[in-house]
Design a protein around this nucleic acid. Structure first.
Lengths: 213, 213, 213, 213
DNA sequence: AATGAATGAGTCTTCATTCAT
DNA sequence: CATGAATGAAGACTCATTCAT
């Protein structure tokens, strides 16, 4: 008799949960939380309605499940800390690339979750702390550190951090809306944003009437 | 038959419509579109449920009504064109101030409308064209013009415009989430953002301690 | 403009409530609370399902409504007090006749309510206080008074009261079960019970080998 | 095929059945048949849901099982017949004591079964014949016999039997409702009821203070 | 125009029962 | 025999919409 059949059981449970969450994410993203019926989620996941409730407390529990998954994707903190030594412009570009690369996996999850999050105090608070604030704080510390090492000019760190993060989030919204320009320029965006942020829009003395880089 | 009892009648009708839209905006913003019942809207507006249907086709018609109102607030184009002569940094600060000042009126409307918009193709398309794309295009033209007049360095205009707009929208989201830093720094934000955008984060040669790249 | 159209409105509401409660009573009595669907109640009442919920909070609210109606039928107290002067045997017969006459109206209500009451602490408590205990206490006082006036032998008043009441309730159960003997002897029951209770089953000295009264 | 592993097997089966019926009785009595889930019964019994269905056809089969158990407790007939010789008052007291002593085992079973029985024609019929009518008929014969031997006055035997039985059942209901008086007077009840029944409530000529009618 | 009672389609959720392991 | 995950039918309840007054 094996000492623990539990691991196998646990893996099956996890797989089933993921199967259901995948389906929920897809359908929520497509039609919105409220216009999606549990029956639809079930048939998309290839299980019965009842099975959903063997793995989640309620329809809203699926939202929380997706939220939790999103949180697990987030490992910004480590990156930030690990990258502290490098040049901030390179760091920004790298971070943006990574985030933008993640977007395919994240896109639907955010779309599935955000509309409800905006409007449900409990979820809003959770989402804010888990994503918005967590990232903002990390960035803030990073900017502060860069200022102290002289890599960045002495700007208002908290607000600047939010400006950078806001620009990124705004971009995500453009993508959610299917903006052609953003979709086409997706790969260039890190460089463009880094340029704007670090070099500024103001013409340099050495760029009189100049051409673009 | 009198020639025109219309004007008065029309004004009454408009007033009643606004009364209902105000109520809908408030309650949608607070609880979300789907969690709000027509009964709630009616009682908040101080009318009966039936009356709502004398002024709007359906519950969704209220969303469209709010969307239309939002559009009426938007007069960016004129500003942009009128301001073309000035210094772009001043323009950015002015525009941000104006927008941020508008925010109190806009906040609830956006919150009422956005979650549904994100998830309803018809509304999404409408919202995208009416707000996102319209503003983006104006900004794009403006940036392009500035580049041509030498007020701005030769950057990728469409992407840059979206970066600026995205930073603004992201800020709005921070506010929707009740972020303390953004709320406290609300008044400073135009200057901070303008500084980042125009002067860049990179230390200038003439700044003490700073070393250029 | 009439000062109060309210009374009419109130009467309509009351009528509709009764219409629904009548239907619920009938169907609950026939199939039991849980086997009865709201759809069935609605169609029996000749209204739509939704209408039920305009008048009652929930399916369980219907039970409470029936319970309340039962309570309104109950005017034992006054009878008891008014009858205190008379002979207790006559009183018992009169009371039983009245109660048994009421039974047609009460039968279904009890059948509708009792099974749930027995098994739902909240309802049980309410039912016990409102019917069982209230009647028991009245009877108890009555028996006590009769003892003091010498109309009844000095027995244990509380227990005796419960014996009388229990005999009546037991009879009701027989009827609920459709017992032929009880149904056939329904009209005779008051006399029989009064005889047993007052004269006792033990043969009297003066009734040697005698015939019934 | 072995000739008899049966006895042992049969005992195990019986034990498991009882284990399940005990659990069902407890939970049905506490929350009612319909509010009890098979999962609850299973966990109370310490088995899995599936196991229940190895021993019973359906959830309703559990009710029938409890009903059958109740029937097995009932051995009134023999008592009645065996006791025919004695004094009827002594018999009543003895029988009541025995029944009241049984009550602890019976209480939950009745509570588990009665609400459904009242409302389910099939069960109602079965219960009526097996308990109500069977006991009533025995009592009726007994009373009739007592009348013929002169131990009891010539009353209406069937109705009187039901009066006695009804008083007992009513008492049981008081207990189900948790009536304090009945609970406290439980031990005295046989004597009290016997006194009422046999001696009557009417004051005797030989009782001080009492004046006869 | 205003009202609000009536409607009934639609949905989440529960739970008895089955069956592969 | 025991298990417990999967099933899906069924039902209470909600709420946008209508319409007679």
């Amino acid at each position: 008799m094996p000492a623990d059949p539990d691991p196998i059981r646990a893996q099956l449970i996890e797989a089933r949960r993921n199967q259901i969450l995948d389906a929920a994410t897809t359908v929520f993203a497509e039609k919105g939380f409220h216009r999606t019926t549990t029956k639809e989620i079930a048939s998309t996941a290839g299980v019965s309605e009842g099975t959903i409730y063997n793995y989640f407390d309620s329809k809203e529990g699926l939202l929380v499940g997706i939220l939790t998954r999103l949180a697990e994707l987030d490992t910004l903190d480590e990156e930030l800390m690990g990258a502290l030594q490098g040049d901030p412009r390179d760091f920004l570009v790298t971070m943006l690339r990574r985030r933008l690369g993640l977007i395919d996996r994240v896109h639907d999850m955010v779309l599935a979750v955000l509309p409800e999050v905006l409007v449900t105090p409990k979820l809003r608070e959770r989402f804010y702390r888990q994503f918005v604030l967590r990232t903002a704080t990390s960035l803030e510390h990073y900017v502060q550190a860069c200022i102290e090492t002289g890599h960045i000019r002495p700007v208002n760190a908290p607000l600047t951090a939010r400006a950078v993060q806001g620009a990124f989030v705004g971009l995500l919204l453009f993508r959610l809306f299917g903006d052609e320009v953003v979709l086409a320029g997706w790969g260039d965006y890190p460089e463009v944003l880094a340029t704007v942020m670090f070099d500024g829009l103001r013409p340099r003395a050495d760029e009189a009437g100049g051409e673009s880089r």
